[in-house]
Design a protein around this nucleic acid. Sequence first.
DNA 1: CGCCGGGGTTCACCCAGGCGAAACAACCGG
DNA 2: CCGGTTGTTTCGCCTGGGTGAACCCCGGCG
Lengths: 170, 170
Amino acid sequence: MDVVLIRWPAEEARRDHLRQSGAPRLLLVESGAAPPVAVDEIEDWIRVPADEVDLHARVENLNRRAREREHVQPELDEDGVLRVGSAWVPLPPVEARLTAALVDRYGAVVSRESLSRAGWPDGAPGRNALDVHVLRLRRRLAPLGLAIRTVRSRGYLLEWTAGSAVLRDA
Amino acid sequence: MDVVLIRWPAEEARRDHLRQSGAPRLLLVESGAAPPVAVDEIEDWIRVPADEVDLHARVENLNRRAREREHVQPELDEDGVLRVGSAWVPLPPVEARLTAALVDRYGAVVSRESLSRAGWPDGAPGRNALDVHVLRLRRRLAPLGLAIRTVRSRGYLLEWTAGSAVLRDA
DNA sequence: CGCCGGGGTTCACCCAGGCGAAACAACCGG
DNA sequence: CCGGTTGTTTCGCCTGGGTGAACCCCGGCG
């Protein structure tokens, strides 16, 4: 998960997009432009033209912060709010139940059947419903640095975006 | 808790001392010196001489982060006056009661029902009354850097705005 | 080697309901 | 009489949830 450099304010749209996908960003503020207001923990800015050393220092800092995020446990409260550190995302009912199941067995594979039962306690709708909700959930969780990985024909598991293949057992 | 400006690396000892006491710091990096490696999330640095605007932006950013970290929350007194730092707003009766409920469970979701009961202890008016008051409350709280976030189908939640305009400079 | 099929992903589209916002009417206190 | 407060209606957007279909990746098989 590398830090992405973005020209500011020229590439504002790109910044929002990257934020959605949970990538750390360094905004290169063009002279004359007002500095941005930080939208999350993994964003920083620097005035250009900038010293190579300074730029590098800020990039490193962002990288470290992105990595630190992985040591926090995601928490889902009763009101469908998923929190990671100070960041949080509201989850709609179905996705909240799915997330509960995933967080519950965090880092381990949860079968499609379990998920389906978790999401729809009294009968699942079409077979595709689960896939679609997983997709939506993925997008919602991305900004928090969480990813839902597929284990083909087995199920899904929840982990950190930047996380390597390291097994993290309880 | 105001941000402390420190010359770097001249005042390194002072920086460590402030870090111990949990104060937010902005290091003024003298030209030629290497940028510091951040020791925590309430420290930032800027190369001097620096633009006034840039410096201010970083200070504000640190203030916001420090506030979050300390779990500082707004205070509502008996007379319907909401205070945050040195700024304040008078709140009319209904909105004061709603705010009380939100402040009470600060940072957590408050259901529409709870809010409705808080605002109108003996019987709620029409269905939309709450929506409208939340809207008005939002406008009143915005200048203080407070925002009421919607958690769809669950309720509302009070928190600090990402880009608050609250100035608490010396 | 190329075709095929199953499992997954993604997209477009639909409907329903929650919520936001503006505009208006009644009201209350000075 | 006037400005601020409160309640209501109405309109419309956006989101949540669901379905079907196209597509893609990969392993198996002729």
